[in-house]
Amino acid sequence: MGRRFLIYTIMALSCLFTLSGCAGKRPHLQQFASRYPVQACSVGVLPLINRSAYSQGDKILYRVIMAELVIQRPWRLALEGDIRRIYRELRLRPWIQPNPEQMQIIASRLGVDLLVGGEILEMEEQVEGDRVNPRLKIQLQVYNGKDGTLLWSTYHGKQGTDYRKLMHFGLSNTVSELGKKMMKEILGLWEEEELLACIN
């Protein structure tokens, strides 16, 4: 009886490892300051830099990040239109990250505590028969709105099959869905590390 139980257990574990994806890749966080702003109640997301060949990838991920931030907590989020207008007034190019002085001006104009910038290092959708396997590698940076200094940076890279639960269940089949899941993990990590304090 005991031997049969052991065999079944081994078989079940083998199936579990075979069918389930390796969703264990966590975002990599790098902190650059010893003290973080007490208040992180408002955020502005800067235009993302798209280093991949995926057309409009920067806009897609930008909108996904905005949605995930709103879902995460009811903080004050600067409108994309306001950020783009300030970029135009300061004659900044959206594909170049502003310098600390420009960050200060943007944050002051928007009245936000933090600025989130970043770049897409890889974004693609590999078509495999009737399935699509998206891949995404991103790097997000968070800046202090008061002085424009880099507070922390997070790298995260995944592909659709990393989220497989069983058979084809759980797979991410679009870059936007993959981006959404990755953003949840990144924001979860930031919360876990207590980087986003907001004391009202």
Binding site: M66, A67, I71, H168, N173, E177, K180
Partner: peptide, 10 residues
């Protein structure tokens, strides 16, 4: 805000 997506492969 909400991001919703669906694929024929889902």
């Amino acid at each position: 805000a909400q991001s919703t997506e669906l694929s024929g492969a889902d």
